[in-house]
Write a protein that binds this DNA or RNA. Structure first.
Lengths: 238, 238
DNA sequence: CGTCGTATTGAGGAGGCTCAACTAAGGTGG
DNA sequence: CCACCTTAGTTGAGCCTCCTCAATACGACG
């Protein structure tokens, strides 16, 4: 009756315990239950804003379903996408009790809203739970650094290659992969902003990759990877 | 007799507890003692490598004195600086039990080496301690995102402006500021790599800022900020 | 004082950005 | 169901900035 999965947090673990990478779920069933018990569920339609930069941060969110984006407004009215978030990601980590960027739903989304005070209480009683959060944030830090490498590059095709591989890795982490396909739930403008290029440059880059036989785009929301090896070569930081 | 300060971790706190920002030290004296008791101290001369990417990660490090840099090797032998680290910063957060980048001393440095197993034990007994680490990693994630904004920019002077403000903010966080001055312990090549530009472009950008009367560089390792307002305008993300 | 690595400056070329036009797709109302 | 409209996305021409390569100044050593 309740189709919403319990709160889940996934990440590449901090330690090297399990030799296989079968599961990247960090939380035990008990922890997921505990989180569910102190959280409220919220449904968001696309383009709905979950929180805005500067708002008082009373909750931490765990994305259960859907895709969200986190961005920062710039002076000139433009915005810069900082990250895309997928199920089992955490968002809403505050700075001095205030959110420091804006979160908006890309697709219909389901979130667990965990009051920070309650979460902290749970941390107090449950060391493992807090440790999993620590792992998750550490993971996000690494991902952010990886993203820095992508943004720092000069060539748009290379950026696109990195982006596709990141999405692919992300999907694999969630057992959500259709072989050879990458799903792009966000607009080109969002991708461009995320990669630090203009939509025009992004479009040209995709065109070049397509003409080069590396990828193929049956429709705007899907990319088929034709030559994974070449894509990987392109994605290698210059 | 022991001039080495106890382990310290500083960050902008997660919550908004203390109205004033007098202190950003996250650890209590007791926690600092606890960390000191399970850690070993290590001294590094400049250009010494603390750990390399891929090495088994048995320790987490807390920088007590000095400046370090963290970088990633690229295919073409070049390297990319991911971050500069200052006293009260944490480094050595692993991925699957292995370090995912290389850490090297920029200046003579003192580190506390905390075995991860011991640290985890302390986390188990001391919820607050783990919480402070969580705050610190969250802080680093935000800083990394800020850095992404800098790298994403197209104009070198703007990048430099952001870099100077970051260093300045960093120094203030540590009560280490000489009014109007920014200390650059790292080489121009390192800064350039960090900002995602060539050393030549960096040099030209600094020259332009100097000729524009925004800054002045008495020597290679110091920048004097002449027009903080204009610098801030330049640093504003475009 | 000479040497080596760091830093700056110059000339030329490549790539992305801007501006603008055009095409495709999705949504609405008749 | 189709015409219309609005937004998303693509393509083209020209400019601007940074990159590349090379040469020159600077500074920290011995």
């Amino acid at each position: 009756m309740n189709a919403i999965p319990h709160p889940s947090i996934r990440a590449v673990p901090f330690e090297h315990i399990r030799p296989s990478s079968v599961s990247t779920e960090l939380l035990s069933d008990r922890q997921r239950h505990e989180l569910a018990s102190i959280a409220t569920v919220r449904l968001l339609r696309p383009q709905t804003i979950l929180y805005e930069a500067g708002m008082e941060a009373d909750c931490v969110f765990i994305l259960a379903q859907g895709v969200m984006k986190v961005y920062r407004e710039l002076r000139n009215g433009k915005r810069r996408i900082m990250a895309f978030l997928f199920p089992a990601d955490v968002l809403g980590l505050a700075e001095r009790g205030h959110y420091c960027n804006t979160a908006e739903a890309v697709t219909p989304s389901t979130l667990y809203c965990v009051p920070v005070e309650r979460l902290k209480e749970s941390f107090r009683d449950n060391f493992e739970l807090q440790f999993q959060f620590l792992c998750k944030v550490t993971h996000e830090l690494r991902e952010s650094q990886r993203q820095m490498m992508a943004i720092g590059r000069r060539d748009a095709p290379g950026k696109v290659a990195m982006f596709l591989e990141t999405l692919r890795r992300n999907a694999l982490l969630r057992d959500d992969a259709r072989p050879g396909f990458v799903w792009l739930p966000m607009t080109r403008a969002d991708i461009a902003s995320y990669l630090g290029v203009t939509p025009e440059s992004l479009s040209r880059a995709v065109t070049r990759l397509t003409k080069g036989g590396v990828i193929d785009s049956p429709d705007r929301r899907h990319i088929r990877i034709l030559d994974a090896a070449r894509l990987h070569t392109l994605a290698e930081p210059s």
